[in-house]
Computed example of a mutant assay.
Amino acid sequence: MAKAELKLLGTWSSPFVLRIKWALQMKGVEYDFIEEDIQNKSPLLLKYNPVHKKVPVLVHDGKSIAESLVILEYMDETWKENPILPEDPYQRAMARFWSKFGDEKCLPSIWRVFTAQGEKIGQALVSASENLMILEGELKGKKFFNGETLGFADISLGWIVNMVILLEEILQLKMIDEQRYPSLSAWMKNFSNFPGIKDSFPPQDRMLTKYRTLREALLATRGSN
């Protein structure tokens, strides 16, 4: 497929955009990446995602697909090479379940830790730890969420690797350790070292700068209310 037929609208730091990059890399699909400024949305983004007005957006042959999990399913149905969803219907359902669990439960609870201060950090950690322990139980005895093969749920939950490292560095705390989360810790290493994943994370120093600034701005806004 010609590179110009496929475009990905996104931002360099978005974990949701990163999902699509990982899947495209795994499938060996060429594409053009168009960097967007979410604070100053381009006419192209507003044209292709008028409903949510956010990234990622995949544009294939002039047709746009929005929402990262929807995009992943579209890609798996369009490019059959290296499938990311299991063939078994139950396993496919479980992959979707854990992906939604990550977005609807894990991500908000970890974000609350990041945006908390003082005693509220500890309170937020309790909820985040409960969700991480659920993932720990699901991964027990497995290399990836579907067993030995990296797939849909791993790509969907891959943001945990980067987000936890950032959070631990900025807040100077340990959220995931090998003693309490042996399976989750092993999964993070296996995921990070998987071909096509290892070198695809945004620069750590740049991410730290961005998230430190973001946290300071959020806390300052909260303090002024």
Rank of each mutant, 00 (worst) to 15 (best):
G118R: 12
P203M: 03
W12C: 05
E138W: 09
L167N: 09
D61K: 15
T115H: 09
W79K: 12
P108E: 08
A116Q: 09
G137M: 12
K210P: 01
L219G: 05
N40M: 07
E73S: 13
A153L: 08
G62T: 06
R112G: 03
P203H: 00
W98A: 05
P203K: 02
Q172P: 00
R19Q: 06
E77Q: 15
K142I: 05
S99Q: 04
F97Q: 04
L219I: 14
S129D: 07
A95I: 04
Q117C: 12
I84F: 01
A220Y: 12
V57E: 03
K41S: 02
A23W: 11
D88Y: 01
A217V: 06
C106D: 07
K140T: 06
K7C: 06
I84G: 02
G28H: 06
S99W: 09
V164Q: 11
D154M: 08
N82P: 11
I134E: 13
M207H: 04
N82I: 07
M75N: 00
D103G: 04
E148G: 00
K27H: 05
K120I: 01
K120D: 14
F144A: 09
K53P: 07
M175D: 04
L135Y: 00
L24H: 05
P203I: 06
L167A: 10
P50H: 03
W187N: 02
L58E: 02
V59R: 03
S192F: 08
N40W: 10
K143M: 13
L166R: 11
L58R: 10
F16A: 07
L135E: 03
L157I: 02
E30R: 14
Q91G: 06
S64Y: 11
H52C: 01
D103M: 02
E136V: 04
D32H: 13
S185I: 01
M207N: 12
I197V: 15
